[in-house]
Amino acid sequence: MKAAVWYGARDVRIAEVGVPAPLRGEVLVEVAYCGICGSDLHEYADGPHAIPVAEPHPASGATAPLVLGHEFCGTVAALGPSVTGLAIGDRVAVEPNYRCGACPRCRAGEYNICRHFGFAGLMGNGGMAEYAAIPAYMAHRLPETVSLEQAALFEPASVALHALRRAGTTPETVAVVGLGAVGLLTVLLAGERGVRRILAVDVSPGRLELAAGLGATDLIDAGREDAGERIHELTGGEGVDAAFEVVGSEIALRTCLAATRRGGRIVLVGLAQEVSLDAFALVNNEQSIVASVGYRDTYPELIRLVAEQHLDLTPVVTSTIVLDDLVSHGFEALLGGPGNQVKILVDPTAHRTGAAVPHPPADRTERQR
């Protein structure tokens, strides 16, 4: 089968590799779509960041080179020994978090901050391939009313949903700073959760226009005006109840702090390095800063929203490409800066080579977790 294999920065190869056989507790998924995430982009541009190189990841046992891609979905093609509750032919969305199930955080239900936290496609082999073998607990069966294209967006939508939950009680007003796919989905889901006023901030007119279509009530072009000051003007000098930093930069964090009211909350979603802030002002304004990493228990809610409430996640998809074009029309297109591309989906089964699906023997052992 074809797969996108990460060997190093600027070295992702579309290679012919063997179809993996699912081991004990695993399923083999025939991948329908896999989205390109900002994390994938960082690994391609100047990684490794999360990809294990020297030591195997404790959850997956994997080291580079490995297959990229954690935003994926598809159809169950084979079952490993001891798998129950799934059948060949089931359409599934993949929740790619590794979890040990035994550490204190897992026992508390907070598996997104498991001691051995990681993602298939970053810390182990993922879905930028025709087939992917994953732990069965990652697979969520889809009702017929949920398309695979929608399911391909559950991973970034989960990041947005978890961030909204981290904001606490549903706020009346929010600012979303940064309108990549996760920022745009935060706008969409904020409206779905009853937020009355949603102020969207970006430097791209095209992304601001997309945000308007997804429910943003106010658009602020941060390339043309001071976003924090503008938000205070629009809210009568009060500021918003909660602001979401979805860029990963000190400038965006400062915008969120300036835009948030006294007693409000800033949710960090973007991945920044070291930042500085005015702690004196933070204390005097009694603002809270909370972090949001990954997600937990989000897929059932998203499946319900799409199946029953007809929530449409697909407006954030700006193109679908074949696996052979991943580097040229995927990574390089996104590295070109803010433009027409937001979420690019990869269809790894186009021009399939016809690889056979393996049937695992009953005595295969479980991968290290």
Rank of each mutant, 00 (worst) to 15 (best):
R261C: 00
A307F: 08
L199Y: 01
E225L: 07
D241N: 11
G215D: 10
L179E: 01
L153C: 08
L28I: 10
C256T: 07
E301I: 07
D221I: 06
A362W: 09
P22N: 12
V83C: 09
V327D: 02
C100K: 06
V316N: 01
R105N: 15
E301L: 13
D363F: 11
D324N: 13
H70S: 11
A167N: 02
L41C: 10
V76H: 03
D324W: 04
A163Y: 01
L188C: 08
E209R: 15
L122S: 08
T235C: 11
L305F: 11
V177G: 01
N112V: 11
G121M: 10
E110F: 11
D226G: 10
G228P: 02
I198D: 00
P360Y: 09
A279D: 12
L311P: 03
P360M: 12
A102D: 12
E301Y: 12
I289F: 08
N125F: 07
D363A: 12
L68Y: 02
I303D: 01
L302K: 00
G215V: 11
A355C: 13
R304L: 09
V176I: 14
I88A: 15
R207W: 05
V76K: 01
A212D: 09
L184E: 01
L179P: 02
I113L: 14
L179V: 05
P315M: 09
E144D: 15
Y131E: 07
Y131N: 02
R352H: 14
P48V: 09
A120I: 08
C106T: 06
R107K: 15
P300M: 08
F154M: 15
L66R: 02
D90G: 09
K343C: 07
R197D: 10
D40W: 02
Y295W: 15
G223K: 09
N284P: 02
L142K: 04
A362M: 12
V327K: 03
S60R: 03
F280A: 14
A32M: 04
A59Q: 05
I220R: 03
L313Y: 04
E301G: 00
S292C: 12
P205Y: 10
C256H: 00
A102C: 11
A129V: 07
G223N: 06
A62H: 11
A160M: 06
V92I: 14
F331R: 01
A279M: 15
A45Q: 15
R207M: 08
L271G: 06
G80T: 04
N125C: 10
C100L: 11
L277Y: 15
V159E: 00
G191E: 14
A216Q: 04
L257P: 00
A211N: 05
G109N: 11
A108L: 13
S328P: 00
P81F: 07
G25D: 06
T255L: 02
G237Q: 08
E110I: 05
I344M: 08
V342M: 05
R296C: 12
S204V: 07
I231L: 08
F154N: 01
P22V: 10
Y295E: 00
A78H: 05
